[in-house]
Design a protein around this nucleic acid. Sequence first.
RNA 1: GGGCGAGUGGCGGAAUGGCAGACGCGCCGGCCUUAGGAGCCGGUGCCGCGCGAGCGGCGUGUCGGUUCGACCCCGACCUCGCCCACCA
Length: 846
Amino acid sequence: MSDQTSAPRARLERYDPASIEPRWQARWAELGMHETDLEDTSRPPYYLLTMYDYPSGDIHIGHWYVKTPTDAIGRYHRMLGDNVFMPVGFDAFGLPAENAAVKRGVNPREWTMGNIANMRRQLRLMGAAFDWSAEVVTCEPEYYRWNQWLFLQLLKAGLAYRTSSPVDWCPNDGTLAREQVEGADRRCWRCGARVEKRDLEQWYLGITRYADELLDFSSIDWPEPIRMMQTNWIGRSEGATIDFHTAADEHQPGGDLLRVFTTRPDTLFGATFMVLAPEHPLVASLTHPEQREAVEAYVTRAEGETEIERLSTDREKTGVALGSDAINPINGERIPIWIADYVLATYGTGAIMAVPAHDERDYAFAERYGLPIRRVVAAEGTADGAALDGAYVAHAAGERLVASGPYTGLEADEGGRQITAALAAEGRGEAAVTYRLRDWLVSRQRYWGTPIPIIYCDRCGTVPVPEADLPVRLPDTVDYRGSGENPLARDETFLRVACPSCGGQARRETDTLDTFIDSSWYWFRYLSPEDARQVVVRSMVDRWTPVAQYTGGAEHAVMHLLYSRFFTKAMDDLGIVDQREPFLRLFNQGQVLGADGERMSKSRGNVQDPDELVARYGADTVRLFLFFMGPWDQGGPWNPTGIGGVHRFLNRVWTVALDPEGRDPGDPAEPVADVAAAGRELRIAAHRTLQGATADYEGFRFNTLVAKLMELTNQLMHLRGTAVATTPDWDEAIRLLVLMLAPAAPHIAEELWSRRLAAAGEAWRSVHAERWPTWDEGLVAERTVELPIQINGKLRDRVELPAGLPAAEIEAIVLARPKVVAALGGRQPDKIVHAGGRLVNLVLRD
RNA sequence: GGGCGAGUGGCGGAAUGGCAGACGCGCCGGCCUUAGGAGCCGGUGCCGCGCGAGCGGCGUGUCGGUUCGACCCCGACCUCGCCCACCA
């Protein structure tokens, strides 16, 4: 027995990730192992997409937290026999490059490309099976020309249009993004000037046309919270538009249309006043001369208010009466018109009918200004004259309309339908649906983005750039002159252009496209990144998309993930692709926070640099430690204290795989009595681990996966140096362990696999090209069970029994157990519950 | 204010109707050592009883409910996190 051999053994070579990992990474790259043959139809395609990154400069631990489990999924699927495609790229346009340019005078392109080079190097340290041959970098003209082309198709289809809308404007730095406006008094981040609103002509995409379809998630498997957020973001409201008209008075002839949207047409008889947004176009003409001063003051104040002030709930309602009246179309009643900042110009029609009895905001407003409050809906059993001490907004069964003319007595919903129908018959209203979602504003007054391919000609108007002239290139040299203002707008060589239509002198559009355009279709381009003739290759798109699995952060719940769905539907309608949804399955991993529990950021100084950890422990340890932290969708504060435990685990794997017969000082020297039995037990453990590990890979439960592999390794460790370590059972357990570890810790698995093959005299082949093993059902099935025995739900005893005994036999054994006899004290149980052979509960009633 | 999610040992977490605390960190003890901050072996929820194998009680944010049985399902509340926020 090897226990007794006393000849000095060669000391086992140390597990040294620093030498193993670069060697295998180089070998995989040399063999092109991660370059997917997109034409290969012999295996099922599996498009695995992880959100591409903004090239901020450095990869931090958060990038590893998304990408390394994604890599494990890809490697696992490869072992299942799928043709896996896992590309990466860079979302390379955007504000930080411009901020760097304004502040430090560096060229945005150079800054961006430098960051990308560094991040490529860091990404390679993960040992992930990314297909770098398919890389997409969105700031390259080869990519953004297709943004321009897609924009032109959307324009042709009537899905892109231009209209005026306000931006935050700094007199020195031009348009500012929301994050560049600082403080409650709204000052420019760079120069500190007071920020104002300015109206600009800007381009929009018609996403609202798809609002209803975007609410339908039936063909995709996405997490409930994301679907909920998108649903709320789209914000569908059913109701009616109702046309009020202004009443004539001594100062104006009346008859102006005041259209409102309401979700409660049933409460129309309770409308006791109207409220317009201060920005409503009719405000000036409807203002009574005596009210002019107050109204103008109020409008000015509302304009100067911050969004946050205006949207704050606990703030008191304010408003001003215009001095004119409107006529309620249902009963001809005259009601006063007010303006108030709680009505938003951008939602609905910018005007509401106020029903204080049945809307909390209207109630608060009516209370404050002494306006009448008239109940028109009452719950069953409420006296007609019952006083209200707040808005009655409940929607209870059996509530009926009161004080509502011919509709009195109707059930509220039915009354609403009849009122809407009556108005529609007279052309004074109709059933309507409104959305919170607005059309997508895609114009940015910035340099570092995709130039919008439009030319303005005095004679021909707005002329699209001909497709043959694409791309409209960004000029390479850019002079910011220390200001944030868009340098394209003063770059004469860029600006001046001949009109494609008449050949006359014309000007280019100087706005660029929102960078969310880039990410709204990038996964299609990964399939043909270098094709200069067409935006996508249809045969590839048909074979590989929709994406099978998408992974990334939940921070993109409503922007990127909604725009991508919109683009896919629009591209389908344009005949470019043939699918309505981009991503069949979505997984949102959690966020890794800094050790302080805050978001990681350079300014907080709480960023964990993975390179340091890799240098110390190796990439495999870092990967497994991130897997082991907790459930993938949970994230949490960064705390590296446990990383040593994971590293020790890999050391033990190394030891059992390469030195099964070695002993450690301190091992108890107990020879195994029954080697055959111990070997069989080990086999059972290995096969059960395989069954569990397979389920964990399928369910993305990487934390419990690592725990299971640790358990098996610990069991192997205990048998090391015993006679069991020389059996085929041991060998099989090691083989399964290495295969199960391969997707998670690819380098050490590859190293151990190559040594196994060499020891067996076989030619090298990659562990990552092996087939995922199958377990033996017979071994996995339970032969004996340890049955817990409860009395009144409390654990009192356990008994080891063969699996599958009939209930009567189990009862006889259980009732004969000394502990059970003692606990029962001579009584018979009133009831015996058998929980599927997994537990017995004896119930005694008092 | 609304929506979504979470609350389990000293810590990260496991178990999602059936033995609470898998696995790991930390800590305690042992082996091996000139030494151990390496490695290996063992122990470790809390309280009480016992020299001891062990025995008993308590225990998954709080309070109720459903059930033979609840960390798990239902109701109310508390705390924390994220998203949205006067949406007519």
